[in-house]
Design a protein around this nucleic acid. Structure first.
Length: 110
DNA sequence: ACATTGACCCGTT
DNA sequence: GAACGGGCCAATG
């Protein structure tokens, strides 16, 4: 892995760390804030290699439809994400999705 | 180098 | 809504 890729990952993590408790951000939103334009997919790769450890609130990143995106593996990760969001007060609708107009993080430029 | 896959997103029908 | 197609691009074999 090149150092350039790693720098991009750090930038992504820097953004994710800023998402407040009880709010969520979409992959595309994180990509934009990290200066990656429309490369939302790149965000998913960065979060995937996180492997649970660390102080990055990866569970606060959801897809553009307000849902938890499926992973290639067993599904425990998705469940953990759901539980952590619930624990922060985020409510899910019957279709398993979040009301983005309520919970989407709107960063204030300072 | 090639093909496939994937924690995505958007527009159209 | 759903189904489809296209764009995107890094990882993997």
């Amino acid at each position: 892995m090149s150092s350039g890729q790693k720098r991009i990952d750090e930038e992504i993590y820097r953004v994710v760390r800023q998402i407040p408790v009880g709010r969520v951000a979409t992959y595309g939103q994180v990509a934009r804030l990290a200066g990656l334009g429309g490369r939302a997919r790149r965000v998913g790769y960065a979060l995937r290699i996180l492997s649970g450890a660390g102080n990055i609130p990866w569970h606060r990143v959801v897809n553009a439809r307000g849902g938890i995106s499926s992973r290639a593996s067993d599904g425990s990760s998705e469940h953990t994400q759901y539980l952590r969001l619930r624990a922060e007060g985020v409510r899910f609708g019957r279709n398993g999705r979040i009301r983005l107009d309520t919970y989407l993080w709107r960063p204030e430029r300072k």
